[in-house]
Amino acid sequence: MSHDHDGGFAHPAPPKLLITVFIALVLLTILTLAMSSIDLGLMGAFGFWIAMSIASFKAALVLLFFMHMYWDKPFNVLVFLSSSLFVILFIGLTLMDSSHYKNSVDEYPRQPDPPALSP
């Protein structure tokens, strides 16, 4: 960490940067929305991955600038990013398994119609 301010450890982010980031986030959101509205037949299953990539890019922007990761200690960055590793592990290993017994779940006898709750 550099201590360019007098004795301080604060790193105020320049307002221009913050606003730029915000505009980028809005544009990316519009992009995802537009993608889902136009029927992109050629993309097919990729649509999902593109949407997720855009979301991750947005997440990266939020993390880097709104959450000051760009100026933060590397250790803190490591700590936070490690969480995604464990999430991937959790999703990945669970998913490897589930299709195997899908049929037993699908064929399990269902409860008959639910109680109506609506007034």
Partner: peptide
């Protein structure tokens, strides 16, 4: 509320609970 995530009677996956629990 029987949200149907773990309860097979509502289409849920009971083994998923075991994954969650042992994770």
């Amino acid at each position: 509320m029987h949200i149907g995530i773990f309860d097979p009677k509502y289409g849920g996956d009971p083994v998923l609970f075991q994954h969650f629990f042992w994770f």
